[in-house]
């Protein structure tokens, strides 16, 4: 009885096991097929991107506008080519020999470009720190890089490039960041927060070119000691320079040296 009853039970168990097994194998087959087709698609996409990057690598390197578009396309496709070069990506299969996709595709030229630019930015910020207190306008930085004293200098870059390069410095834990004063972007290379009064004064300088204590008194209705304290603070940090040849002392921001040149 027991025996008989058990037999169908067992056979049903084994058949269910068999079924399960079939399902699993079929699923696995489907998955592999899926993966395979994805892989093919990916490799096709990669080779296309590769070709694109190769045929246009000159443009990518030479033309800032084009480079910005290319970078935008990549970020739209959710490819962070800056990250992909130092994260040894976990999709490892594509990265033969441990190289990142981008280093492999472009011979390292695109992500290296941003790293090089990052290095140049750090160099320029360091070089000018005593002059401008660690605050430099992006446009000023661009002209400096264009003049290129450092290694790999003398290249034309766009604001977008500089933003990306500064972002790429983030993993270093350094204090490089882009801040906005008025409608101008500035790169700050010192770990210092400006207080509201200081930012207000810098903003006024950016609009008017310079400020004087009485201008601050009139326009911001500040008390004289307050206006004085703010400019003294800024001066101590090399964030403004004093000009004593205009009657009342004028305070100018060295972050806009080149901007001042073009304005006058």
């Amino acid at each position: 009885m027991d025996h008989r009853r058990r037999t169908p039970g067992l056979s049903s168990l084994s058949s269910r096991g068999l079924q399960n097994h079939h399902y699993t194998s079929h699923g696995a087959a489907l998955r592999t097929r899926n993966a395979q087709s994805l892989e093919t698609q990916l490799s096709v996409f990669q080779s296309l991107l590769h070709n694109f990057a190769l045929t246009h690598s000159k443009d990518i390197r030479a033309n800032p506008a084009f480079r910005a578009e290319f970078a935008r396309m990549c970020s739209a496709l959710n490819i962070d080519f800056l990250a992909s070069s130092y994260h040894r990506d976990n999709k490892g299969a594509e990265a033969k020999g441990g190289e990142s996709i981008w280093a492999q595709l472009l011979g390292g030229s695109v992500n290296d470009f941003y790293f090089n630019l990052g290095v140049l930015i750090v160099e320029e910020c360091r070089a000018t720190r005593s002059e401008n207190g660690g605050l430099i306008s992006v446009s000023d930085l661009k002209t400096r890089i264009l003049k290129g004293r450092g290694i790999g200098g003398g290249m034309e870059v766009s604001d977008d490039d500089i933003k990306r390069a500064v972002d790429s410095l983030a993993p270093l834990g350094s204090c490089f960041s882009i801040m906005k004063i008025g409608h101008r972007s500035l790169i700050r290379s010192v770990p210092k927060e400006l207080n509201t009064d200081q930012s207000t004064v810098l903003e006024a300088i950016q609009v008017l070119g310079y400020v004087t204590v009485s201008m601050l008194q009139i326009n911001l209705s500040w008390e004289r000691p307050r206006a004085h304290a703010v400019v003294e603070d800024l001066m101590a940090d090399s964030l403004v320079w004093v000009d004593t040849q205009a009657g009342e002392n004028e305070y100018w921001s060295p972050a806009f040296i080149t901007a001042a040149t073009s304005a006058t």
Partner: peptide, 20 residues
């Protein structure tokens, strides 16, 4: 570029600025 920057012609009182 500093040549067109008016404060360049006033010697700066802050030491670090002055050395630059």
């Amino acid at each position: 570029p500093q040549y067109s920057f008016p404060p360049f012609f006033t010697l700066q009182p802050v030491a670090s600025t002055r050395s630059s």
